[in-house]
Design a protein around this nucleic acid. Structure first.
Lengths: 338, 338
DNA sequence: ATGTCAATATGAATCGTTTCATTTATATGA
DNA sequence: TCATATAAATGAAACGATTCATATTGACAT
């Protein structure tokens, strides 16, 4: 198994040498490089030949110094090991690289102070823009106005923001469970200080309230935790240890990770999913389809949202735009009729 | 819920203004900034006061132009949604940021040509170094010698490389299954063109061969696929559709994702894990502990490996170093005695 | 008081681009 | 054919930091 790599000497070819080789001025070479500017055909070709011949590659630092920004986009996530954020990173990296932008990844690790520091460090790199998934609604950092920011997944007013219509999307889960005949329902909410989380919870409980007006036997209990696996597991454990008569027949979670934790707990306690308790998640992370059993959930149109974020950052129109998307119910195997 | 952010005007404070404010030369300010150089106490303080007063922040692009490199580390992974690579990214980002380095994330999406292009783009950003998890053993790109490269998870000779002793670690899985009494064993291997994959397979089958010399009733069948979920699922489906008498009682996989896919398949086919078939994975991704049932696997010391990679890039010693680590057997609930 | 040496501070050159004010070449119309 | 308008190419300044050769200062010995 031979390794096919070659060592190269550090090519230190500058625009000046290209200019000399082609017998033109540096300005002309620069204008050939910036495809938009006018250079006549013969000269342009001569320059291009020299560029290829000398293997010239522009120095991004010099360019950045002049232009005041680099072809780089920043992405700040609370935690890259969260499959939902990893998926965002994956799509963003892929789409950005198609357009010639690199991605700087920063993680707030769920800490607002660390987030502020990381954000400031990100800014120092003069990126073209930053896609920010805030760790909570209280943002501690100062937002620059020369660098475009697109807030993902957390609707902040007066900013470029992209998020689900959390309320309506969450209502889909409520509808689904009630249609299946569930009348005792538990909801595992996310943290109180995140708007997204509040909206999901409100959307769910409001829809249940509507349905109650037609069918007053529906009971809803709300529990609150973090968005992660362990929180879902702990809460589900509480829920399922209620006596049979009071125990809910369905659990809706504000995230797939909570739902996965809940299934984990149910299985440990000998409660069968979906026979004895139905579980529905939120996000549709890749894993949802690979679980045993496969997870019923609400899918976010992540691809569309990432494309929109990129557009808010790279597009020429810098008007503020607050987009809302609609979730989609994906029925799999963790929900069933009572 | 008030949003606590403030808009700031683009502070365009340069070293020159700091110098003027403090009444010193730009050179002096620069030397105050570079903590190492000698500037006498009173002056140094005066400069520092001005820096704080004017909120001066150095321009990284200008610095990069002079110094020929940026405080940035590149990371190239085959796929960031793979939980193992996400964990590497998470740790690397975290450790690098402690040392003042940002992380540029690039993904090869499993394509060697794309990998080469992305690598070259990474190089253009003049990072201090690059941590590379190659998508296969045949590297198509030219490796620079002025930028340090640390190859993770794929041992390439004559390069800084960090990897598990795949063979010995894999043998742990073989030992475990045989100790549990399994005599008909299937192995789901990874792709043929990755050294890592070959070594894991060889380590497993060699250990089985050793054990056969004492106990000739052990049978091993090897199947080959990709490292991902779906490949594991498809192969497991083949394995488990064998007639009862020929069907293996244990499946060892070359990755946790394959193992998860295999459990998925078993469950779909009504084969109980671990009662009717044991499954063991490799990597110990975060998810392994959250699955139902929890996955028995071989853990990689990812943290140690990431620290070592950073050291190979940032450390002062630029001798080539080819480190091997040992995996650890983590027994959970997907393996049981026959 | 003067010369010497070391310790500090200075300022100009430099890194590799882009861009803008000029100059030079080309085409158009009278 | 010449003046004029337009297009194309040039060259130097600028971006903001670092660094090195030079200048300044102060202390000490003569």
């Amino acid at each position: 198994m031979g390794h096919e790599y070659t060592m190269i000497k550090t090519s230190k070819v500058t625009i000046k040498e290209v200019a000399k080789d082609a017998g033109v001025s540096v300005g002309t070479v620069s204008r050939v490089l910036a495809k938009t500017a006018e250079v006549k055909q013969p000269l342009r070709e001569r320059v291009n030949r020299s560029i290829i011949k000398l293997k010239y590659k522009p120095n991004l630092a010099a360019r950045a110094l002049r232009a005041n920004h680099v072809n780089v986009i920043g992405l700040m996530v609370p935690d890259i090991t969260n499959p939902y954020f990893a998926q965002v990173a994956n799509l963003l990296e892929s789409e950005a690289s198609k357009k010639g932008y690199a991605l700087i990844l920063a993680s707030s690790h769920g800490d607002v102070n660390h987030e502020a520091r990381q954000f400031s460090a990100l800014l120092d790199h003069s990126p073209k823009g930053i896609v920010l998934i805030p760790t909570s609604d209280t943002i501690k950092m100062e937002l620059p106005k020369n660098i475009r920011i697109s807030i993902l997944d957390r609707p902040l007013a007066e900013m470029n923001a992209i998020a689900l219509d959390q309320g309506k999307s969450s209502a889909l889960a409520a509808d689904h469970l009630v249609e299946l005949g569930h009348r005792k329902i538990a909801y595992i909410a996310g943290p109180h200080d995140i708007q997204t989380s509040i909206e999901r919870e409100a959307g769910f409980s409001n829809r249940i309230a509507e349905l109650q007006s037609k069918n007053d036997s529906i009971e809803l209990t709300i529990f609150r935790g973090q968005f992660d696996y362990t929180s879902g597991e702990a809460i589900a454990r509480d829920i399922l240890s209620l006596v049979q008569s009071k125990r809910p027949t369905a659990i809706a979670a504000a995230s797939d990770q909570q739902a996965i934790g809940a299934i984990r707990a149910a299985t440990d306690m000998g409660v069968s999913v979906p026979n004895e308790v139905s579980v529905i998640g939120f996000d549709d992370i890749v894993l949802a389809e690979l679980l045993v059993p496969r997870l019923t959930t609400i899918r976010q149109p992540v691809y569309d949202m990432v494309i929109e974020a990129l557009d808010q950052i790279l597009g020429r129109d810098d008007s503020i735009c607050n987009q809302r998307y609609m979730g989609e119910l994906i029925v799999r195997s963790t929900t069933a009729a009572v």
